[in-house]
């Protein structure tokens, strides 16, 4: 695992290839959460926001295991002007989502009914985007900006 070095104002931002976690087990989810959390804290996110990012990673990784069996979580630090953010990419080569609009509604899945799952992640993060074609593969991009 490559380390993210963040020292005060001198921020070293890791390249996307350095923060990929292959998701195929609960242990891998833990690894992805851990990296997401420490990246977030390093970027100056509050502990609460870092938790919400870890939560989003959990939900996205869960979906990968559930629907595709395996996939990948990639983490990408963002910077615009003086603001920092963190983007979480969840990608898999599973069956894709046939009806994306419905999948983003709360009542669609069991998780959704509780406000979790994809609709939940959409609410927790500032930016949310899904690319899928219903034939194969899904990529979700969810990003949060440090508001503090």
């Amino acid at each position: 695992m490559h380390m993210t070095r963040l020292r005060g104002a001198q921020t070293v931002i890791v390249g996307i290839e350095e923060s990929r976690v292959h998701i195929d087990s609960d242990g891998a989810i833990v690894e992805a959460r851990q990296r997401g959390r420490s990246l977030a804290l390093g970027l100056g996110f509050s502990a609460g926001s870092a938790t919400l990012i870890a939560t989003s990673i959990s939900e996205l990784a869960r979906n990968i295991l559930l629907y595709a069996g395996e996939g990948e979580i990639a983490l990408q630090p963002l910077r615009t002007g003086g603001r920092y953010g963190l983007a979480v990419f969840a990608s898999d080569h599973g069956p894709g989502i046939a009806d994306l609009e419905r999948a983003l509604e709360d009542g669609y899945s069991t998780s959704g009914r509780l406000g979790l799952g994809l609709p939940g992640v959409r609410r927790l993060m500032d930016e949310f985007e899904v690319r899928t074609n219903g034939v194969g593969g899904t990529v979700v991009r969810a990003a949060m900006w440090n508001h503090s």
């Binding site: 938790t51 919400l52 939560t55 509780l114 406000g115 979790l116 939940g120 609410r123 927790l124």
Partner: peptide
């Protein structure tokens, strides 16, 4: 504390859903 916050996080998600609804 981090453990407790983590255990409440799904409820936070659900609460946001209720607010939106």
């Amino acid at each position: 504390e981090p453990f407790l916050i983590e255990a409440f996080s799904p409820f936070e998600m659900a609460q946001r859903a209720v607010r939106d609804t």
